[in-house]
Design a protein around this nucleic acid. Structure first.
Lengths: 184, 184
DNA sequence: ACGCACATGTAATCAGTTACATGATTCT
DNA sequence: AGAATCATGTAACTGATTACATGTGCGT
């Protein structure tokens, strides 16, 4: 009867690294992020927060309010930071999950550990694989493909190419700016 | 006790437009497409197929095999084509769902209806909105954003830009190649 | 010998959304 | 007046995955 996935709980936990906030705040933050990390409902957020609390990964401070329901400000604990560090370290060996990748980007390079370039390279590999999968698919389409099919594959290919280009550029940029990459 | 979502059933139905095939085949096809349309499991595929059959949107031909379980080849019916046509017509008024968009691309321009440019324009709008949402988020990040946060937003922005560029190019190309757009 | 591709199907379980309850305050 | 924002929470439901049952043939 665990609430939510490990992945989801760590997403929420990841948001709390930057600053303490309420469940309501996490939702707003995620929406403000343009859905880059998804747009979960309260029915997912609150239970996840309760689970984190139960596991001692966060603490609550109840800020009462005269009229509205009291705000519950959640703060990540040392155990929580440790758990996140572990999650970031062991997690996506070859991530095809865009959101998990973005979350990892946000956490690495910040207070967790400077593995930014490592994650970018991993993503590079995953996208390259995806790209060649699509090329393969395009080739196998062979027999009288419809306009729609062609355009769809093209579309996927274009996005993958753009991702690869960006990743390459960013990696080059980072290697110039801070050649001292590696874990503290 | 309906099996699967309308969206998912239509995905499967959409694959059958091009050629008749078994449940096993649909799964392979989707994987070959590099996960562009997702990688559903048999536990989702078979029930969806049964539901389509019950609704008369597909027919089955059981091809027995001496040793292995018989293959069940599903073929879309006229009613199925009609249902798909309707789904494509009414569906995502402003799709933020990449997969649904790709499925629409595949269906339009083929045997369904030539609404390709309309769908591309709709997508263009959705991506533009997403892009400006991210720019807003970047601005609001304000206070001492971490390297990771910056990179994550940049990444989202880069992909959105690439999508917009591709969409613009493709629309220009289509308007030259076939100015006679519009539904038959 | 062992696993993988072929091929279908069901049951248990999970992870999430939707809908509801509660209730004051501010915008239109 | 009516809608939206603030704020938390639970219960019912849905849509999917995972794991299992069943069994042959082929590659290494």
């Amino acid at each position: 009867m665990v609430k939510g996935s490990v992945r989801f709980r760590n997403f929420i936990l990841g948001l709390l690294v930057k600053r303490s906030m309420s469940g309501y705040d996490t939702r707003r933050l995620l929406r403000n992020l343009g859905g880059l990390l998804g747009t979960p409902s309260f029915g997912a957020i609150y239970p996840a927060l309760h689970a984190l609390l139960e596991d001692g990964l966060v603490t609550v401070e109840v800020v009462p309010h005269p009229t509205r329901p009291p705000r519950k400000i959640y703060t990540i604990t040392d155990a929580g930071k440790q758990a996140l560090r572990e999650w970031v370290a062991q997690s996506p060996p070859s991530s095809t999950d865009l959101r998990a990748f973005i979350m990892h980007l946000m956490l690495t390079g910040d207070s967790i550990c400077d593995r930014l370039t490592a994650h970018l390279r991993q993503r590079q590999e995953a996208v390259a694989t995806h790209h060649s999968d699509l090329e393969q698919a395009a080739r196998e389409l062979g027999e009288q493909p419809s306009l729609g099919e062609l355009v769809a594959i093209e579309y996927g290919l274009a996005i993958a190419s753009a991702e690869m280009a960006w990743l390459e550029g960013k990696l080059a940029q980072l290697s110039v700016e801070q050649p001292d990459a590696g874990c503290r």
